[in-house]
Amino acid sequence: MKHDRAGHRVWTRPAITVSTAASTVTAMCALALFMVWAMADPGPEPEGSEADSGAAAVFLLPLFFAVLWAVSFALTVTLVLPALSLARGTGTRWGRAGAWWWVPAALSAVTAAAVTAVAVACGSFGAVAAPPVYLWWWLGVTALLTPSGLLARLVNLRAAEGRPGPRADRVLFMGCGGLAACFGVFLTAALVTELVT
């Protein structure tokens, strides 16, 4: 286990699992918002295309969830927990150690470095995008991972105090329940709007 300067454990199994669960839920919410946006503004359909059946999506859902969990785990290990360690070190050095706002600040720095590294790597292959594209990626990844970092911080703080923190299964259950509730509200609003107009 890695420790910060104060001797606290930074990388704990509960922090990793809760952060991975939170990243999975926020990614599912982002994908759901993208799907809703795509349904609201479908754009022109190419000629000769037919509507796909939703049955294939039901069978591919477990595979999709497994891939999403693996990506969330990779993001937790490469971005969230290093940012959490940076937040603790910075907070200890500059005052107010353990304050929650160090986590989003550290995450923005770590994700900026990651997006810059990806931009440089893509640039070496000649695939250069406009600067606003990288800015949007930085903002999106930071926003996606901030809840994960805050929950991992909470788990570590409660473990240091000897109290139980949020568990990964509860984060997934509550997140998926919230996502289903949001979809229910959206579909109800769409149905009411369709009936009224």
Rank of each mutant, 00 (worst) to 15 (best):
L135F: 05
A180F: 05
R93C: 11
F186L: 09
S108P: 02
T24N: 03
L172N: 02
V171N: 00
C122G: 06
A112P: 11
F183G: 03
W100V: 15
L61I: 08
A114L: 04
L135R: 12
V196T: 11
A74N: 13
T142P: 09
A21D: 13
V155G: 06
S23F: 00
L172C: 07
F59Q: 02
R153W: 09
D4N: 13
W101M: 08
Y134T: 02
G43W: 01
A152W: 05
W100M: 15
V185Q: 05
V110M: 13
L150Q: 04
A130L: 03
P131R: 03
A51V: 15
R153T: 00
L145E: 00
A40D: 12
D4R: 08
A181L: 14
A55C: 08
V10M: 07
A114C: 08
M1S: 10
F73M: 04
F73T: 11
T197E: 11
S72I: 07
F73Y: 10
F125R: 00
G123I: 05
G178R: 03
F59V: 05
A181F: 09
T24V: 10
T12P: 05
A56C: 03
V118H: 03
T111H: 08
R13L: 13
T146F: 04
N156H: 02
V80I: 10
F186N: 07
G95C: 09
L84S: 12
E50H: 14
G165T: 04
W11F: 11
P14D: 00
A121W: 07
G7P: 05
G91W: 03
A6K: 14
A87F: 07
A129S: 13
P131L: 08
V192L: 05
P166C: 01
L107D: 02
A159L: 11
A113T: 09
F186H: 03
P14C: 05
A189Y: 06
E161R: 14
L84N: 10
S108I: 07
G95V: 08
T90Y: 14
A143Y: 10
V141E: 04
W137P: 00
G98A: 09
W102P: 09
M174E: 02
T17Q: 09
A21K: 05
V71W: 14
P44L: 12
F64W: 13
E50F: 13
W94S: 10
R9M: 07
S23Y: 00
A83C: 04
A97V: 09
P42V: 11
C29V: 13
H3C: 09
R5I: 06
E45T: 10
V196I: 07
A27I: 00
A113D: 12
V80Q: 07
G184Y: 04
T17N: 10
R93K: 14
A99V: 06
R167V: 04
L187P: 00
P164K: 05
D4V: 08
P46S: 14
R9Y: 13
S23T: 07
L86K: 12
L179E: 04
A189G: 11
F34W: 15
L150A: 09
T111M: 01
M39G: 03
S19Y: 05
V110E: 12
P44D: 12
V128S: 03
L139Y: 09
G178L: 04
A105T: 08
R5W: 13
E47D: 15
R93A: 15
L31G: 15
F186K: 01
R170Q: 01
